[in-house]
Design a protein around this nucleic acid. Structure first.
Lengths: 232, 232
DNA sequence: TGACACAATATGTAGCTACATATTACGAAT
DNA sequence: ATTCGTAATATGTAGCTACATATTGTGTCA
């Protein structure tokens, strides 16, 4: 870090302190960038970078011409990294295993249609599979793939290759949504994951699109004890 | 967006496409910024911004002198917004309610010590409370506050004021960690949340620090059906 | 051979200018 | 009074230069 110059991180902390100390409360308008630049004796670009970062963190809101305001409702903004299951398992020293359970072409359920925002339901490929760590069930994956968007999926040998990794390589997405919730293991899930029926399990649901076309939606039901951690 | 000039977002997409198309695979080294700037006929600062964004998204890794590499393990990086419970409830048109259930000064459990990384356990303030939406239980909060870091907490009337909101105003944190998992409702939890014993519930655990000093750790157990969504 | 100092190098940051863009504010016209 | 076009304005972005910093690589000396 330089000595005599202001760093944008220092500027960010200074402004953040103003907000934390209550000098600028929720909803208050902050001075415009050029004014702060003058006041803090630095370039507007430095202020801009600091402000952008505070905006990304959900602390302030900026609008052209409207100016910069402290967010009315403070919030905690966290970043989560969701790795490919194989890497997650191997990363902690486990032996990755994979098992295809079901693969059927059929019309999507209402829930799947809703998750992907599909107007005209066409046949999709449903794939149920199990990821194992050292031979023990790790996550149970229930996936629906759009045949229209990804026709090549029908040619893939899913008994050997994992649909998730194939899709990542062959059908990159431009947008995605995630959803987390808890559910009680039903009979089938309990059997496949080798847990007691009724166990509380964490479900991670993901939907992906390329532009506006739906690619896939997948619900990964994790084995008991699974925890999702925020980054750093 | 300007016409004749390259935007950093366009540059980002172009580089991203190289990666998606396999032109640069996992672990591959990308040309240095100045080279790309020449190649794409734009300023290095534009490349820098694009690269920074790709780096933030977890797609590439940059190291000074080491250069820029495509990440070996692709991952999904998501951003979550966790609002203050009151705002969350009011934001969806509900009537917010609050109820203090327990408030005791006592030594922390091993789990709490571990969560906050405390070396020498001292008495903390344990606060159990319930957040309600339209009179129905919404989340059950089990909180431990460091009396050493936040002595003023002892003077607060927690039957009227919510510890979370008081802490946000009076003990701003510099670092936090989040953890999500599923659990089965035990007898006490089931009663307080008015759900059947054994119901699967989503737990959101948060720990906060100011510099290295622990402030608080809180486990929010949400009512059934609660879903956590990734931002935009 | 090994340790250590130092040069080389790619990214990171600050400052400047110029222009783009979104949105508010205002004034004219109906 | 309401609608609409236009000017004013604060933020957003691109390009340039200069320098900082981290890390790799290399050469020197014991």
């Amino acid at each position: 870090m330089q000595q005599g110059r202001q760093t944008w991180k220092a500027v960010r902390e200074r402004i953040h302190d103003w907000i934390l100390s209550g000098r600028y409360g929720p909803g208050d308008k902050l001075p415009k960038d050029s004014e702060l630049a003058l006041q803090m004796d630095c370039a507007r670009s430095t202020i801009q970078r600091a402000m952008q970062d505070l905006s990304d963190s959900g602390i302030i809101e900026r609008r052209r011409k409207g100016g910069t305001h402290v967010r009315k409702n403070p919030l905690v903004r966290a970043t989560l990294d969701i790795p490919v299951t194989r890497h997650e398992i191997e990363g902690r020293g486990g032996q990755y295993g994979y098992q295809l359970i079901e693969k059927v072409q059929r019309p999507p359920t209402r829930a799947v249609q809703a998750a992907l925002g599909m107007a005209e339901p066409q046949d999709m490929l449903q794939i149920v599979c199990l990821h194992l760590s050292d031979g023990r069930p790790y996550t149970l994956e229930n996936r629906w793939v759009s045949i229209e968007t990804v026709p090549d999926i029908l040619q893939v040998d899913l008994t050997r290759e994992n649909a998730n990794e194939w899709l990542l390589k062959n059908a990159p997405y431009t947008r995605f949504e995630l959803k987390f919730y808890a559910l009680n293991a039903d009979e089938k899930t309990a059997e496949l994951l080798s847990v007691q029926q009724g166990s509380a399990l964490l479900a991670i649901e993901r939907a992906t699109w390329v532009d506006e076309a739906a690619i896939t939606t997948v619900t990964a039901i994790t084995a008991p004890g699974y925890q999702l951690l925020s980054r750093s």
